[in-house]
Amino acid sequence: MKVPAAGLPARVRIHEVGARDGLQNEKTAVPTAVKAEFVHRLAAAGLTTIEATSFVHPKWVPQLADAEQLFPLLSDVRADLPVLVPNERGLDRALALGATRIAVFGSATETFAARNLNRTVAESLAMFEPVVGRARQAGAHVRGYLSMCFGDPWEGPVPVDRVVSVAVDLLGLGCDELSLGDTIGVATPGHVQALLEALNAAGVDTARIGVHFHDTYGQALSNTLAALRHGVTTVDASAGGLGGCPYAKSATGNLATEDLVWMLDGLGIETGVDLAALTATSVWMAERLGRPSPSRTVRALSHKE
């Protein structure tokens, strides 16, 4: 039953991260052909932005070592296919295969920057500057990820002003949009609202902001609703709730795309996603991974008679 609520957007763009952020956390590599079919199924379910893979060194993320083999298999997919690149070498590999949407991955905290990028926050921004510049010169759309925006497993709560400072610097490199990451899932709605208000006060347009919540404490949907009430219209989610973060062991699964779509459908917010087809896709992938999906919506709908 659709019951719209006042003060919410009419449409939300879901930035699907299951094929990249989800599968990079698997203990064993998923076959390339399965990854390709996963992306095709997600597109057929109506998702229009599907993060495909990551052009990082296989040593760091061996689960995505097949980026060169996978990306050409997606040439017929009717969706935007962003790819993550860590540096100029990664950008070269992505552009050589015709990628037109690029993402860089930064950190709001020094400890995670050191563990994930082996650099300080300032050094990582300096590394991203030529990547973003060259991507823009090539006509690519650039997304900036900012992780640890609400809490860090080593440093604890992250001050809002620190997040705003790094966010402004990352956008200043030329990123088209910014995804705010609750990497370990500790955010609560008031904290989300406070950060978004502070970003606006610093001159960041809400239209350039996406949100990326993890469901560690069961807060991902409530945090998403807080962001929607503030005017955010881009939400990251992972089909079946796949994913985590290999460099932050306390990071559990992403917000499940099916759970998000169920909420948005109930609010009368358009997504263009066929929930039944998406659920079937996540059930199919869960079978390939050999375990049930953690998504409550997938479990509920797949067990209906």
Rank of each mutant, 00 (worst) to 15 (best):
A237N: 05
V273M: 09
W262K: 13
D236C: 00
Y247L: 07
D259P: 08
L264F: 05
D236G: 02
A239W: 07
A239Y: 01
T233C: 14
T233K: 13
L242C: 02
L267F: 00
G244I: 02
G241A: 05
T257K: 13
L267Y: 03
A251C: 11
P246S: 10
A256D: 04
K249A: 15
T233R: 15
E270A: 15
L275Q: 09
T271E: 08
L275C: 11
L260V: 12
V261H: 12
T271D: 09
T233M: 13
N254Q: 07
L242Q: 07
G268F: 00
G268L: 04
A239V: 15
L267W: 00
G244F: 00
Y247W: 14
A248Q: 13
Y247K: 11
D259F: 11
G244V: 04
N254G: 02
E258L: 08
T257P: 09
V273I: 06
L242M: 13
V273G: 06
L275K: 09
M263N: 10
A237G: 02
P246W: 01
K249E: 15
Y247A: 03
V235K: 05
N254S: 05
D259S: 12
S238I: 03
S250R: 15
D236T: 10
S250F: 09
E258A: 07
L267E: 03
A256F: 07
T252N: 09
D259H: 11
E258R: 10
L275Y: 07
V235A: 04
A248H: 09
G268C: 03
A239D: 01
C245E: 00
N254T: 08
T233Y: 02
G241S: 08
K249M: 14
N254E: 08
